[in-house]
Amino acid sequence: MAFRSFLVFALLMDKTGFSAEISVFVQTGVSVQLDIQTQELPEFYILHWINYKSDNIVTYLSGTKEIKPHDIYKDRVDFNKTTFSLTLKNMQKTDSGLYRAKTIGQSDNNIVTYRVSVMDEVEDPVLAVNSSWSSPDPCSFTCKGSNIFISSIYNGSSCSNEEVTAADNHTLRLSCSGDSIMCNYSNPVSLKTQVMKVNELCTVKQGAQKNEQTIYAKVDENIKPQKSLEMLEKSENPRTVYDTAGDTDVTNHTTPNDDPMNQSASLTEKSKPNAPSTIYCIIQQQPKPPKLKLITPFMV
């Protein structure tokens, strides 16, 4: 059965001259093979593979070539009579711990010890633009993987390559190549990557719209601009008016003392024949006339 594991050798010497401990990382649900790390073993009668609870996983009798698996591992182990290696199937997180091969003969020897760590496959990393970013500033984004993240800025054509490793052996890597941003998330048994183009990630945000009222009005040729302005004059809210005036034959002139309303109308009326003009006028709220008091006459 295929298996996926990752070995880290931590070689220590004991009195027997054999390696003392080897670290192994294995993905949840797959198998792992534990090998004897020496070609020649001392003469023995019995070889045991023992788990972290000191339970026998399998016992091999050299005289009869008999293999005796422990009941709880009966359907989960394969033992090789030639190499004496042990394969454990369908590993779960509860299987994490120490595994040791030991021989019994004229002397007892610890042949090899494995420290097995069972880990889940990593989740997909996430590339996301930071909520505080807005165009036209350089794109600010985050590369995230479960419990760790990297924040960076794509400035023009590049970003800084960064790497963060958490205490649980999970590593997050950020890199940029051309117009692509790559976020890698990995642990000793798996690796996943998300790649995005800069224009896909850093889309231009629309600026906030101003709270203003704009009126677009096309003035009929038979209606003087003054009438349109008079209708808007009664409004309580200041507004911006864009009026397109039609042709007119009026050629009146204004003086500096003329009312602004009449000036706007007159400016339109002075336009060249057959050439529509545009009026930009801010309508101000007109002050209300003062109230008159009624005085009752009295007799002396």
Score class of each variant (00 low, 15 high):
residue 274 N to D: 13
residue 83 T to Q: 10
residue 79 F to W: 03
residue 114 Y to W: 08
residue 228 S to A: 07
residue 214 T to N: 14
residue 230 E to H: 06
residue 118 V to A: 02
residue 84 F to V: 01
residue 174 L to I: 01
residue 198 V to S: 15
residue 48 H to K: 08
residue 174 L to T: 00
residue 272 K to Y: 00
residue 191 L to G: 09
residue 190 S to V: 15
residue 137 D to E: 07
residue 27 Q to R: 11
residue 57 I to L: 12
residue 100 R to C: 00
residue 35 D to M: 08
residue 227 K to A: 10
residue 45 Y to D: 14
residue 176 C to F: 05
residue 213 Q to G: 12
residue 275 A to L: 14
residue 53 K to Y: 03
residue 140 S to D: 04
residue 156 G to I: 00
residue 114 Y to A: 01
residue 102 K to Y: 13
residue 264 S to W: 00
residue 117 S to M: 06
residue 298 F to I: 13
residue 189 V to D: 03
residue 212 E to S: 05
residue 285 Q to F: 15
residue 266 S to P: 06
residue 50 I to P: 00
residue 266 S to Y: 00
residue 226 Q to W: 09
residue 45 Y to P: 04
residue 202 C to F: 04
residue 287 P to H: 11
residue 279 I to F: 05
residue 210 K to W: 14
residue 31 S to F: 00
residue 126 V to I: 08
residue 208 A to N: 10
residue 155 N to P: 02
residue 88 L to K: 05
residue 25 F to S: 04
residue 220 D to V: 05
residue 237 N to T: 05
residue 178 G to D: 06
residue 85 S to D: 09
residue 190 S to N: 07
residue 249 D to E: 12
residue 165 T to K: 15
residue 206 Q to S: 07
residue 283 I to N: 04
residue 28 T to I: 13
residue 75 D to A: 05
residue 114 Y to N: 06
residue 27 Q to A: 13
residue 18 F to S: 03
residue 122 V to T: 05
residue 31 S to Q: 04
residue 6 F to I: 02
residue 2 A to M: 10
residue 189 V to I: 08
residue 281 C to Y: 11
residue 214 T to R: 04
residue 219 V to R: 09
residue 266 S to I: 07
residue 135 S to R: 03
residue 231 M to F: 11
residue 78 D to Y: 02
residue 224 K to Q: 12
residue 229 L to F: 01
residue 170 H to D: 09
residue 115 R to N: 14
residue 22 I to L: 12
residue 36 I to V: 14
residue 152 S to R: 01
residue 272 K to S: 12
residue 204 V to I: 11
residue 165 T to V: 04
residue 90 N to C: 11
residue 259 D to R: 06
residue 170 H to T: 01
residue 281 C to M: 08
residue 93 K to I: 00
